[in-house]
Structure formats: C-alpha cells, structure tokens
Design a binder for these strands. Structure first.
Lengths: 349, 349
DNA sequence: TTCCCCCCTCAAAGCGCTTTGGAATACGGC
DNA sequence: GCCGTATTCCAAAGCGCTTTGAGGGGGGAA
C-alpha cells in the first residue's frame, strides 16, 4: 500500500492525503479523519526512503561504535546508554542506526554517513583528548553531541558529562578522612578524557593532603573485571599494599573484590573500595545498603538527555551550544571503612 | 556532491558513472578507474535513500529491542551480541537499525518496519514459547532469523540456538557426580524459551538420579546480579540449604557469589556454583583456571552467525530454512567441588 | 573503402513521497 | 445576482538514484 493507491482508493489526490496525514491545516478535519481511518485500516505508513528523499532528512540518528581491532571488549555501558537514548529518540520520532568500525576509521565513517545522507546527526562516544572526530564533524556540518568532553577542542560543541574530576576528588577525600593513606587507583584508559579527569581529581586530593602518588598503585586500561582483578592482585602482593582502592567502573570493582577474596581480605574492613557506578541495570548497587560505596551517575539517563540535546540541535542548528555537567551522587555502602594499620590486620588473622 | 554533479564534472552520463561504481561490465575499465578516482577525490557516496528508493531495498537490518515498561533491565548480552552481528553486517554492506518498543507492541513494530520499507530483515531476540511475533513476520513476509527457538511454532524458520537443555542436564549431572543432592536452580524468566529448556535439562538429570526438585530451591526472573543474590540468600537461609547452585547467567552468578560471601561460605568448597557463561567481553571467565565452572557459549559469535544467516535469507528468500544448534562448552573452574555434608561445614567453622 | 558488429555510452522513465503554485468550490456581503 | 474571500483540493515538479532501451563510435573483416 503506497500513497498513490491509498489516494485513489479514497478518491483524493496524493497531495491531500499527504497533507492530511502530516497535519497540515489546508485540509478539513472531516477529510483528515477519513484519511487517517483509511491509512490505519490499510496499515499504510509512508515509505521511509521516499519520505527522506523528498524532505532531505532521514529522521535517523547515528551511533558509531568503534571496536579497536586489538581490544575485543564491548563497552558494558553501551546497552544502558542505548536504552536511554532509544526511548528519547522514539519519543521524537527518530530511529537509531549503529555502525561498527575500527577506531582509526571513525572520522571517515562520519564523512561517509554525511555523504550518503544516512543520518541527521550522531552521538560521539568515548571522547579522547584532542579528539580528531570533532573537527571533522564540524567541518562537514553533521550535527553531533558528545557524551563526555574532549579537552583540547577549542571550538564550542554540545556535550554532557559527569563531573569526573570532582567525583574522584571527593571520593579520595572521603577515603583520606577515613584515615587511608595508601590509596590505589584502578582507572580506565587514560587517553580517554574521562579517565584523565578522574586521575586529576584523585591527584588533586592526594596533593592537597600532602601525599605522593605511588606509581605502583595506579593502573589504567580497559575496564573489565579481569583488569580490576589483575591489578588489585598485583598491588595486594606488595609489602606496602594499599588500604583502599578507587575504581573507575563497577565491573572492575567486581574484579577488585575477587582479588580481595582471593587474599582473604574482607572488603570494607581490611580494605576499602570506592567505585564509579554507571547504574547498569543488571548490576544494581542500590537498595537501603549499597554494596559498594560509589560515585553514582546513571548512564541511561545520560543517554536520554543526550538524545534530547541532539534532537534539539538538529531542529535548530544555529542555536547556541549547550553543555551540561552532572554531579555524581556519592552513596555510602559497605565497601568502605576506617583505615587499619597492617599490624591490626595481622592481629585478626 | 551527487551523481549528477559528479557525472557532469567527469563529462559522462549519470548512467555510466552509476554503472562504473556498481561494477557493471558495460563500462570500460579505463572509464571505471577514472570514475572511481573522481568519486573518492570528491568524497562521493550515493545517497542511501535515493539508492534505496530506486532499488527497493534498504540494505539495513532491524533489531527490535523490547523494553518491558515494568522491567527496566537492559539485557547485558545485548552489547556483545550487537558487536558480533555488526561486524558481520559491515562485511556484507548492511547497516543496523535499532528500534526500542514496549514488548506488547513488538508485532506492530514489525508491520510498521515492513510497511515503511525501513529494513530488509530483522533479528528476533529472546523468543518465548508460542512467540506471537513469528506468525506476524511470516504473514507480512519480512525476512527474519531467531536467536533461540520458539517452541510451539510449527512452520519452519531460521534459528540458531545453544543446546540449553543438554548444557543444563550435563551440568546437573556433573554436580550429581560430585555428590551434590540439594541443587538449586536460579533461572531466567521461564516464559522465555531458553529458560524453559534449561529447567527441562535440570529436571531430566534430577529425575534420572531419582531426586525430587524442591520448589523452594528454584527461582526464575530477570537475570540480574540482585536476582542471584536475593534468591541465593533466601535459599541459604533455609535449614536444608542447597550445596550447589545452577545459575543461568554469569551476572546472576556474581550475585550468588556475593550471597555466599555474606554467609561466610567459600565458593567451591562449602557450596558449588555452575553458571551459564555467554562470554561477555568485560566479564572474562577464561584463563588457565576459570573462576566459575561454566557452560560456555559466545553470544558474540552467535550474533555474527545469525547476521550471516539473515543476509543469506535476504539474498535468497526461497532457500530452505536453516537451523543451527550449538553445544555449550563445559569448562571446569574453581567454583565447584565435592559435596560436603552440613556437619562437615559446621566442623570447620 | 565500406559494412557490420561489439563495446561503450546516453536519455529518460520510474521508485514513493513532499510541496509549490494554482484551480475549483462554497459562502457571505453588498 | 455578482464578486471577493475562505476553504478545500489538485497537477506536476523534484528529491538522487538505478535501469531499460536505444544510439554513437571505433575496429576488424570483406
């Protein structure tokens, strides 16, 4: 069933039918009702591509997920982010399109998406410092919003970020207040902008307390469970082991916790753990008593908010850039406690 | 840059340019080379929608993710599945489109995708028994493949599934051989086809051993960490607590493990755990000594295989239906051990 | 040289929709 | 009764591509 068939079936012109369906005022309400009834009865929906050709836009948003060929890891926050964004897109009548490419081809992919008119806008994920994608997007004029920020980009752009620096500074301060001095940082890849900011927050609090950061007690890498486990094991094996861990992802925190178990250490008593929690829906850390003391910010909410921002940007390309900085919520769980001296630990065992 | 501009620029007709780019033999190799060079130089790619309008297909695959409004949970396997599928689609020159809808509207969504010509085919996720989506898809003639199976559908269709029944039967047998008798099952939603088969496998092994299933030792629900924790806590609080857990997802297994910790029970010694492992990339359970004894099957590989199947189906709609049943790999980790009598446990404490 | 054939190229139709500009109808007011 | 003004509708152009059916040119054979 296409427009022509429907219109002859109704004894109307294609124009009238199209206008009736698209809510134009030039058509009487009586006619409109009749048209809509017929459309639903015959399960008519305008052909996406024809509509797009005629209007010049696709009502489709692109998400380019870049899989480094070396790194086989899928970002665990991806599902929740897309769930939040998808809901918002649906509300605005947009579809979402995924493209998977090697990281180094991402800029070309944007050019291609633009050239083919495949999408009306894109969300930029996981920005790095001086991210090469942003200049490309600005050059080709493809509307975009950034999940996070890209330090080093001077022209303004739309972004939404969590105040990672503040969150990690506060979390570190919290651990310091509990008496911890040897604090380990299990971070993400530090080319990533967010990871850099997190380290900066950690470093600021440590410096303010007059403490040196032991390079042996920091790690950065892909935020898997294994990453948390491996580095925690390495650090716990040291004679001057850390009494607290600051972890960039709840997934890695699970690994840290496994390492504590393997060492017979009780989390929250012998060793404290604070983690960033993206509120992944399948890894609830909520309830009256959260397991992990955490800096919490819902990535799903971020997806929804960014989707709204992008739709706004597409509708009004000339509007001033909008930036949003969310503060992470700090929740106290049972994974932290006052620092103990190693001798105290020994005594217990 | 569009076809018309490119062709006048080259002094050729649109036909020739189009044919040159699409590899038709009617154009000389010399001309073709010139055209391709110009196209890359001017960053020309045919407009997706125009191309789709003319050819009648979209070179786009639909994935409908249904979010039950009540259940806010995102399926954790989603990211890995899409990563596998995306890679395969890219290889075949297909895009993927995501649509998020309430579960009860999913069938309508398929009709709509078809009516609008939005996609050339779809992947059906999480089939339930007598899944209402399959008849709809067959009726409207939208090519599809199913990740899993839908018992109760009699007309043939393309599917790829893991032998869930066999996996759970074997895993149960493994636990029985270790001397376990009180075995708990932490399952997914049992309207889901895979969960039903898993329970059937568990039940078969128990029955073969002449054991009754204690209804207090089974649970079904959304496979979150919390789900695993809550039910394990409930079961462990019983006087006749289980000595082993059979878990449907490594996410829930993490929750079971947390419950064991909370009860001061050591996994693999006092209580055994066997889990299904989808090989989520951020939750590695690999290495020389896996943490969890597991039934393992890569959901990423499944995504890739299903994508290939779907592309085949689209290219040859009349081909005989293809079905694939994968056997899960059984890996022995440190989460299982010989059953101990409760008294033994007591003695240790 | 002439003819024919093959190779290469082209003009134009059509995919299904939106939208412009114009035409037809209905309705009051003088 | 006539004209101006709304109101409602329509024909046709155009979005950028593919593809059909046909035309032009170069080379080999006679």
């Amino acid at each position: 069933m296409n427009l022509k068939e429907l219109s002859t079936l109704l004894g109307l012109s294609q124009t009238t039918v199209s206008r009736a369906l698209n809510g134009y005022p030039e058509v009487s309400e009586k006619t409109r009702a009749k048209v809509i009834a017929a459309a639903t009865a015959h399960n008519y929906s305008p052909n996406l591509r024809a509509q797009g050709l005629a209007t010049g836009h696709s009502r489709c948003i692109g998400h380019v997920i870049s899989a480094r060929p070396s790194v086989e890891t899928v970002n665990p926050i991806f599902g929740d982010f897309m769930a939040g964004a998808g809901e918002a897109y649906a509300r605005h009548g947009y579809e979402m399109m995924l493209t998977q490419v090697p990281t180094d081809a991402e800029a070309d992919t944007y050019r291609n998406l633009k050239a083919r008119g495949a999408v009306d806008g894109v969300v930029v994920h996981a920005p790095s410092m001086n991210d090469p994608r942003l200049p490309v997007l600005q050059e080709i004029g493809l509307p975009f919003v950034v999940h996070g920020r890209a330090s080093g980009t001077d022209t303004p752009y739309d972004w939404l970020d969590v105040n990672n620096r503040r969150a990690f500074e506060d979390a570190t301060q919290y651990l310091l207040n509990l008496g911890h001095r040897r604090i380990a940082l299990i971070n993400g890849h530090e080319e990533m902008d967010f990871a850099m900011r997190r380290r900066a927050g950690f470093a600021a609090a440590m410096a303010a307390a007059g403490l040196e950061i032991d390079p042996m007690l920091t790690a950065s890498g892909e935020m898997t469970e294994q990453h948390g486990y491996d580095h925690a094991m390495r650090m716990l094996a040291r004679p001057d082991r850390p009494t607290a861990f600051l972890v960039a992802s709840i997934i890695s925190a699970l690994g840290v916790r496994r390492a504590l178990d393997a060492n017979g250490l009780q989390m929250g008593r012998e060793v404290s753990v604070v983690t960033f929690d993206d509120c992944l829906s399948y890894l609830g850390n909520g309830g009256a008593q959260p397991v992990f003391t955490a800096m919490r910010s819902s990535v799903r909410a971020a997806g929804a908010a960014l989707a709204d921002m992008l739709v706004d940007r597409i509708r009004d390309p000339g509007a001033p850039q909008k930036t949003t900085l969310w503060e992470a919520e700090f929740v106290i769980g049972s994974s932290t406690g006052a620092a103990r001296r190693a001798s105290q630990d020994q005594a217990i065992h």
